[in-house]
Simulated scan of single mutants.
Amino acid sequence: MVEYEREPSMHDPQAALAPAAPLERERVRRSVFRAAFLAPLLLFALLPMGLVHLVLTRSPVASHRYLIPRWWYRFALRVVGMRVIREGRLTKDRPLLTLSNHVSWTDILVLGAHVPGCFVAKADMADWPGVGFLTRFTRSIFVKRDDRRNVGEQAREIGDRLRHGEPVILFPEGTTAAGTSLKPFKSSLLGAVRLARPAEDGAMTIQPVALAYVRRGGKPMDERERRDYAAWIDDEEFAPHLTSVLFGKPLTVRLIFGEPFDVGPDADRKRLTRTAEETIGTLLQKGLAEG
């Protein structure tokens, strides 16, 4: 339940501030509880979950392979205090490539909790302390986008996941943005996915998704607040942003599933990239407008 502070009175400013103080103390108390109790519990739970996860990854049912990671992502959303408003649903069509805009590391929690699939991640993430273990635990595919020697191997791994019925989640911007507009989509990323699928595999389904960070503490964010509190740009330090999310006012994000569409093996990657960019841009602006 979202709590709102009362508007200050012009006649008695000191009295008007009184109701806000207990609400702020309660918010901080909840944040400290999440950080002090739930966060360690989330980490310690990785060991028993990992053992079950090893068994489930061998399941012939694709959705079973991501059952434990999805549970972990949903718990993580509680730890950071994020609220997700979902619009639409993930298609049941397979093979499936899910394309989304990219605002912050929290995108991974939101999408991972609702899409039983794997992320395509930058190779250097595998070496990040803590994060590298988590990305491997959640079966991410690591790619070196500037290493052409490994393009074939990386593409084959993507193709294997798609052929085995696992949705693949890709951020076509290739990096994070401020959350109010999109950076140009990279057609090379979609080209790698096309390379992963031989012509005899037939059509593939693409579903565009938009993540719109709309509120902080239950109140609408403007463009500056969205950049300062929701977005995490690549060259920023991780720890300060993590602290801001944990102890700051809770964020609300709209997760908007667009209409899926099929593409054949001969689809033009540049035209496909433009279509995806326009579709996700429209969904993003719709989500921001609805607040």
Score class of each variant (00 low, 15 high):
residue 46 L to V: 08
residue 252 T to N: 13
residue 113 A to E: 01
residue 227 R to A: 11
residue 130 G to S: 08
residue 146 D to G: 15
residue 10 M to F: 09
residue 80 V to I: 10
residue 206 I to K: 06
residue 104 S to F: 07
residue 146 D to V: 04
residue 218 G to V: 01
residue 149 R to D: 14
residue 16 A to K: 14
residue 88 G to N: 05
residue 222 D to A: 04
residue 58 R to G: 07
residue 82 M to V: 03
residue 6 R to H: 13
residue 171 F to E: 05
residue 166 E to K: 01
residue 279 T to L: 08
residue 4 Y to I: 00
residue 93 D to A: 06
residue 127 D to C: 00
residue 73 Y to R: 08
residue 152 G to A: 10
residue 208 P to T: 00
residue 70 R to N: 07
residue 156 R to I: 00
residue 53 H to T: 04
residue 36 A to K: 13
residue 156 R to N: 12
residue 105 W to Y: 15
residue 214 V to N: 10
residue 165 G to T: 02
residue 134 L to W: 12
residue 15 A to G: 15
residue 227 R to W: 01
residue 86 R to M: 13
residue 42 L to S: 14
residue 58 R to M: 09
residue 123 A to Q: 10
residue 127 D to H: 08
residue 150 N to I: 00
residue 86 R to H: 02
residue 128 W to Q: 12
residue 178 A to R: 09
residue 249 K to G: 04
residue 281 G to K: 13
residue 113 A to D: 06
residue 113 A to N: 04
residue 255 L to N: 14
residue 184 P to H: 11
residue 160 D to W: 04
residue 222 D to H: 10
residue 188 S to P: 15
residue 211 L to W: 06
residue 176 T to M: 12
residue 188 S to D: 01
residue 173 E to H: 10
residue 96 L to K: 06
residue 240 P to Q: 03
residue 176 T to V: 01
residue 288 L to Y: 11
residue 76 A to Y: 07
residue 264 G to L: 06
residue 210 A to H: 09
residue 138 T to E: 06
residue 223 E to F: 04
residue 144 K to N: 12
residue 86 R to N: 02
residue 158 I to C: 07
residue 73 Y to N: 13
residue 8 P to K: 05
residue 283 L to H: 13
residue 16 A to R: 14
residue 115 V to A: 08
residue 195 L to I: 00
residue 20 A to C: 11
residue 258 G to Y: 05
residue 241 H to Q: 14
residue 183 K to Y: 05
residue 102 H to L: 01
residue 190 L to D: 04
residue 239 A to S: 12
residue 279 T to E: 07
residue 178 A to P: 03
residue 273 T to Y: 03
residue 224 R to W: 05
residue 245 V to K: 11
residue 289 A to W: 00
residue 177 A to H: 13
residue 32 V to N: 07
residue 114 H to W: 08
residue 250 P to V: 06
residue 68 I to H: 05
residue 15 A to C: 01
residue 109 L to M: 13
residue 275 T to A: 15
residue 220 P to W: 02
residue 17 L to I: 04
residue 230 A to E: 06
residue 244 S to M: 07
residue 266 D to F: 12
residue 4 Y to A: 01
residue 179 G to T: 00
residue 20 A to D: 10
residue 5 E to L: 11
residue 270 K to Q: 12
residue 266 D to N: 14
residue 94 R to A: 07
residue 234 D to N: 15
residue 87 E to M: 02
residue 63 S to W: 01
residue 206 I to D: 08
residue 263 V to Q: 12
residue 106 T to Y: 09
residue 202 G to H: 05
residue 62 A to Y: 03
residue 201 D to P: 11
residue 133 F to P: 10
residue 112 G to M: 00
residue 282 T to Y: 05
residue 153 E to N: 15
residue 178 A to L: 02
residue 185 F to Y: 12
residue 25 R to Y: 07
residue 121 A to V: 05
residue 187 S to A: 15
residue 290 E to P: 08
residue 20 A to L: 04
residue 36 A to N: 09
residue 187 S to K: 15
residue 162 L to E: 11
residue 165 G to I: 02
residue 19 P to G: 13
